[in-house]
């Protein structure tokens, strides 16, 4: 989870968003973190590089819970 948070922080910083954020299972990638499709694509690439799993390949990912489920993270 810590690794995911770091990736999200980096993508947000690249977009010029420095505000702190909280990650809960319900955190929406689009609504709460301000990600658009291109940010989600970048997050996919970073997660795949770290975990070897393409989280968006098998369906829509809306929130942090969806990512954790696909990566089998608790």
């Amino acid at each position: 989870m810590g690794k995911i948070a770091l990736m999200i922080r980096q993508i947000r910083q690249n977009k010029g968003i420095d505000a702190p954020f909280e990650l809960t299972p319900d955190t929406s990638l689009r609504e709460d973190l301000g990600f658009d499709s291109f940010d989600l694509a970048e997050l996919t690439v970073r997660i795949e590089d770290e975990f070897g799993i393409d989280v968006f390949e098998t369906g829509i990912v809306e929130n942090v819970f969806d990512i954790c489920e696909k990566l089998n993270l608790k």
Partner: peptide, 8 residues
């Protein structure tokens, strides 16, 4: 493109 995204 994914490679470019990863590396910026």
């Amino acid at each position: 493109i994914r490679n470019a995204l990863f590396n910026g």
